[in-house]
Design a binder for these strands. Sequence first.
DNA 1: GCCAACGTTGGC
DNA 2: GCCAACGTTGGC
Length: 175
Amino acid sequence: MADDGEEYGVPLLNRLKTGYSACVYQPLASLEGDCATGESDMAYWLMKSEPDEYGWDDLLRDGSTEWTGVRNHAAAKHLRAMKKDDRAFFYHSAIAQPCIVGIMAVAREWQPDGEEGKWASVKMTPVEPLPSPVTLKAMRAEGALSDMATLKQSRLSVSPVREDEWKHLLRMAGA
DNA sequence: GCCAACGTTGGC
DNA sequence: GCCAACGTTGGC
């Protein structure tokens, strides 16, 4: 079981849940409380990372992370559009079974990343893991997700997710 | 401003 | 590890 993409499946999530409840459960309540404006215009995103480099369990361990290193103009544009408390799926890429494994929130809006001043990074914090990960394969099989930016352009590491797509994915994840 | 060459990313 | 897709660079 530990020899291919399955290691990023349910067994890993079970392991993560433990660490999650142990160290970072508080964001949900405080984030909801911050929405004083009443009507939510919260946006949704999908952010990719190679778990060999930085995965969901690293984010749980750290409590939050600066999402640096994005060097694609379209992705950088999305980073600059992200607002505090927006939600984002954490997607594990470049593994045998690429999949969405958890939900993050924008903890702080963008700041310059790098010397050139043309790139941006945001600060992200974990909200909760998905009950079961949603694989890329499963996403591709869903007609309701056929417009998703990440499916149309696989190399885009930060992409918007529509509200209907977000809800659909949550249902697929058993959330 | 076009386009060929090249580099990088990400899925398989 | 390979290859397709995409972005960037540089010659013209």
